[in-house]
Amino acid sequence: MTTTIESPPDTAKAPQRSASSLVDAVFRAREISIAGALVLLILGTYLANPLFLSDQGVKDLLLNASILVLLAVGQSAVVITRNIDLSVGSVVGLSAFACGKFVAGTDHGVLTVMLLGIAIGVVCGLVSGALVSFGRVPALVVTLGMLYIIQGIDYWWAQGEQISASDVPDAVLGLGSGSLLGVPYLPLISLVLLAATAYFLRSYRSGRELYAIGSSPEAARLAGIPIRRRVLAAYAFSGAVAGFAGALWLARFGTVVADNAHGWELTVVSAVVVGGVAITGGTGTVWGAALGALLLTTIGSVLVVLKVDSFWQGAITGALLLLAISVDRIVNLRMTAALRKRSARHDHGA
């Protein structure tokens, strides 16, 4: 008792700093190590083939990553709440095809097309979200079902039809190919959305509540958090982002068929998990998820440049995923033990 009164600043500060810095360090370490891996990968490939970092090479790299980064940001919001959205790949496909069908042969503006894409995505997200939050059906099953339903609708609608770039208005294609001060629009758009989402998740009550729900649904309920509304919102957001990504897909490639972005949902989830968003919810940042997406895309591009068979990409993604999950598990156990020791020590002091 007496010691705490006599020397409050020092004794109080020391354990504080160490406990919080430990946690900070762990999270930063994840992002730094991914960034480090990225740098090494890019540097190594550059040494093997200098063309990899030519103006066009960098541009391609960024363009390829943009859509995956967007989807990873949307997916993170859902995964943080201890849920998952497997329907995003098919939503991108549906949105891209619908937008293409809508603009083919017309001169609709960019904004209209983007809004249409977002609207399609929101509707899909709301259906999944409502089933998960109000219907209390496990997210894995709901979104897997949605994946097949949306894909089915897409195939039925497209009937093998293809929309080609010549049908798409130049204004729309311009968004996909244009750039600002040499940086293509697409990565800029992704960056803005990424930064805004990161800020929201960090600095707004409803953002923090998503983490709370994922960390302990029971505690969230007792804290009076409107869980169902928040989860629904997370799905709507993920859907909106996927729909938006679909519209951007059209702008980027011009040519769309029914099964665009087929199978992307698993790549997105992998990116998110590799990036440090725990599949069990409650931790991780969208910055990490975006880095994860960037890493996976870069690996894909590197394999092309190094002329490695593309089937290796899947194996490498899988290995990274297992590595990430193992690291999460180990760090989690170690950190719990360290924190426990720390509280034991301070109990002794008190």
Partner: peptide, 18 residues
């Protein structure tokens, strides 16, 4: 925390608390 007379850092995660 001061008022309750405990030495717990506000930034520490709740994981591992007794």
């Amino acid at each position: 925390m001061r008022r309750l007379g405990v030495d717990l850092s506000p930034d520490r995660p709740a994981r591992g608390l007794s």
